[in-house]
Amino acid sequence: MLEARGLTKMYGTHKALEDLNLTVKPGEVYCLLGANGAGKTTTINLFLSFISPEGGVALVNGIEAAKQPDEARRLITYIPENLSLYPSLSGLENLQFFTGLAGKFMTDEQLLQCLTEAGLPADAAKRPVGGYSKGMRQKVGIAMAIARDTRALLLDEPTSGLDPSAGNEFAQLLSEMSARGAAILMATHDLFRAKETGTRIGIMKRGRLAEELRTEDISHSDLESVYLKHIRE
């Protein structure tokens, strides 16, 4: 579903991403780990075609993102670290707008159902988003993915700043999404959550994929050791 082939990105003379190759299949949660500047967000931005690659291709269900950005984006739900929503609109109105833009037109009841599935109570869904916590906003993001029946989910440090309970709730929602067949690519610093939620983990270092692991093959402590080894090298 999501595939990077020899993906390379330069910022001036700085190589932000070098020859990245990875594949995220439907039902898979692929977690990108790495220090700041390792290339995690750059990878996500290339799949969304917010930036253009100097080499290689980012494919979304076989569609080259750089060449057909709108088509590729319609298959993706994007949840950044701080999900931007219109503060004067309610969660329901935000969801209605964003899903409408993606070509999904649903009734208020259907949208409320999506929000409830994402863990947002109906009374909160009708209040202006300006009063939402970060966790509540992220739930609207998940509701977008549910409503759009999304094929691919790109998450850029979505649990950063969430309290442990909200983080855990969010991880459960991701598991449900992957169970529905979504391919999920998540950039994160959270080793624990990556091990718990992910099916595979890619450790990035200076724009390269330094190591790829299956979460079922590694323990929490081993993951931490491998990660720290790469970071300190």
Binding site: D70, R74, Y78, S84, L85, Y86, L101
Partner: peptide, 16 residues
Amino acid sequence: ERESGMLRMLLAQGVR
């Protein structure tokens, strides 16, 4: 919308 990241959210929906 650019500063708040909203523009990216809009573009991410496949809107030009």
